[in-house]
Design a protein around this nucleic acid. Structure first.
Lengths: 408, 408
DNA sequence: TCAATACTAAATAAAAGTGATTTATTTATT
DNA sequence: AATAAATAAATCACTTTTATTTAGTATTGA
């Protein structure tokens, strides 16, 4: 009987705040700071947060005591007492991330630094709820058991990344409707949450990938960006004010459903033009083995003209979808990533950039268009980022301030 | 020398919080609560906020002392001591809202309840920065002077609602490009902020109208909705997590720039099909006076077939734009309002609802489509809402919690 | 019917608790 | 000697807890 199920933290809307909330907030602030900026001495943390040195000292000591933070080597060479950089302890917390995909599902275990420690994979013809549940339980058990014993209790949660509303496209991808329908009434998240001793979260797979870019991405990102993840399906995520936005039902960033104009003039959904399944279909009609695309995301041993054709169509469609996105939200960047070799990602990126020039941008600002940094692991990492974010990070950027008037 | 200029409150990103911040937060919480729910006795405020009765008592007393709150008549008839409902004092604070439009500009003064107390209007052939500035200063002075003397210091700020990037469409609307270009380097907001003793804020006119619906609208709204405002131009606003999202440069909700398919098959921007200027052009080609549309937003003495044609095209285009919006953000509602008679708004609404049935909604949730409640005053009200929100309301919904674990 | 009494809920004063800040001191280095 | 990091002790701000007061309704009994 535990309540580890909710996929959204359920807005408590109008609750007041007290000192414990204050401390909790400041703790998260320090975690967030160390997560994004890396190791920092207490004194500098005090400077950038505006908290007093004493407060930082007290909080940090408590968190170090609890094993979440650790001291680095003292930095000498500057005047004054040497500074001791504090950083997240890699084994301060662990997180499980489950990706459910079209061809395979995968569970990863990451540490507090976001490094993937271990993984388990399951290949399948079609994803299926019961099998997914069994795999999740088995993989979670194995991955946790392989941790040193005293670390096992530090697993802080599990995240699940899966495509939403796949039954809507069973026809498009010629999938067995009956099997897809099994996902309709399946609440894998609540189900696993009831079985496991830590909270379980759920997110759309592309949004999760987007969240991974936000939390683990190597590049500095603007506060608002839109993200395309090209897998078997194309999907998306939106980051607003530095935080992933998923909406009440988690369906924000359903970019695959964006209407675009196909080369033949018809209006179709983006998913039909820019997903890998459309390339796969082409392979099949050419008599090639579709598994060429799925065995290794680092290498696509496929005739180049097929890829070029696909990229051209996909880029054109993505550019159109991007303009629509920009008309809704003033995104400062567009990030493109997916389950494909980095070289392909680069070519697609450049094609999208070129296709943007043909779009009518009157009244909207031209965004930066850039590559994602996580590639094929983005979804699983995004899943694992869910419990990390929920427990340790500040996502909103809009805190309650420190009440100091900016006196002149 | 004052710093009342920034249109965004400039994210202080990683600041810690202290007790004064805590109090400030809880004060805003109470303002927000009383603003949205109306009068409430202290005891109930304590219940819904989760704060202790004592805390609420202390905070409320201070705010009452400062003239922001006032006691209502004690409610008798129930067991126990009668409860004294507390409410916002109408004259606790005043706010100025300046709307700059295509045909006219207008300044309103609202009180703490959001009621329009007074207004000044300026008709013009084209909006022009210098004239706008002069009008704003004059109108602000007059409106404030007409307040009782002891209330004049309670004017808490001014908001400006104006179309963004109008120079991009000078050709479309056959406006003098040179005059439109004068807006390029004009920072009316900073300019007025430097002249006036209270902060000045700026927002895109349609986003402002959207914000007005959020702050003053009569209907209960979902946390995420998209808003179309049909004026001389069509524009939009987006509400996410119960807060208006404008983006870093304030250009979010630039729905006029949304590409849609025109009846003739061309891809054009929504602004060309669903703005009132397209109806105005039609009037001109029919030899009618365009001022028929602009003299009274309660009545359009125009041949009905012209209006029907316009509604049909506009609704078709808005429905397409709506689908694109839903692919980006999982909006739960679509709100349509504008500078037109309520009967026209209703007809447009119904046409959009009908047009939605022809759209491909695979993978996205069907939203509620509803009317706005503020009509022609929406933009000015939205402008006035800016200082109100900035100073008194919580917009984010994600506070810092009260640290109470939800113990079982 | 009318006091007298019991009960209830609102409101708040006083005391206690929590957490951040200020001030002063210690420590390790250039 | 100067400087910066780190922290202990004292202080301050704000919330909560506890106890008390207040103003009403409900009940009881003559």
């Amino acid at each position: 009987m535990n309540e580890n199920s909710g996929q959204t933290p359920s807005s408590q809307s109008m609750r007041g705040s007290n000192q414990s909330g204050l401390r909790a907030w400041n703790e998260r602030l320090l975690f967030t700071l160390l997560h994004t900026q890396g190791a920092m001495p207490k004194a500098e943390i005090a400077r950038v947060t505006g908290l007093s040195a004493q407060t930082v000292s007290v909080i940090i000591r408590a968190l170090e005591q609890d094993g979440f933070l650790e001291k680095g080597d003292p930095v000498r060479g500057r005047i004054g007492q040497p500074s001791v950089p504090m950083s997240l302890a890699a084994n301060g917390a662990y997180f499980l991330g489950l990706k459910i995909g079209r061809r395979s599902s995968e569970m990863i275990l990451i540490d507090f630094h976001g490094a993937i420690r271990d993984r388990r994979m399951l290949r399948h013809d079609w994803p299926e709820p019961k099998a997914a549940r069994a795999f999740a339980l088995k993989a979670a058990h194995e991955l946790v058991q392989r941790l040193p014993e005293h670390d096992r209790a530090r697993v802080a949660g599990m995240g699940i990344a899966q495509p939403f509303q796949i039954w809507d496209w069973s026809e498009t991808i010629s999938a067995p409707q009956a099997m897809m329908d099994r996902w309709r009434d399946c609440d894998l998240c609540a189900d696993l949450g009831a079985q496991l001793p830590y909270p379980v979260f759920l997110r759309n797979d592309a949004s999760a990938a987007c969240g991974a870019e936000l939390v683990f991405g190597t590049r500095a990102m603007p506060r608002d960006f839109v993200y395309f993840y090209i897998g078997f399906f194309i999907g998306g995520g939106v980051v607003l004010n530095g935080a992933l936005h998923t909406g009440e039902s988690g369906n924000s960033g359903a970019l695959g459903s964006m209407p675009v104009r196909a080369p033949d003039g018809r209006t179709v959904q983006l998913i039909e033009l820019a997903s890998i399944f459309s390339l796969e279909q082409r392979l099949v009609t050419e008599g090639l083995d579709p598994d060429l695309l799925w065995t290794d995301p680092q290498d696509w041993p496929v005739p180049d003209h097929l890829i070029s054709d696909w990229i051209a169509r996909a880029a054109q469609a993505i550019a159109q979808a991007t303009v629509a996105c920009l008309a809704v939200i003033d995104f400062k960047a567009v990030v493109i990533d997916g389950w494909f070799p980095p070289a392909i990602r680069r070519r697609l990126l450049e094609s999208v950039q070129a296709a943007m020039n043909a779009q009518n941008l009157a009244g909207i600002d031209r965004p930066l268009i850039s590559e994602g940094s996580l590639g094929s692991d983005a979804r699983a990492l995004g899943a694992a980022a869910l419990p990390l974010t929920d427990r340790f990070l500040i996502t909103t950027e809009v805190g309650l301030g420190n009440g100091q008037t900016s006196g002149d």
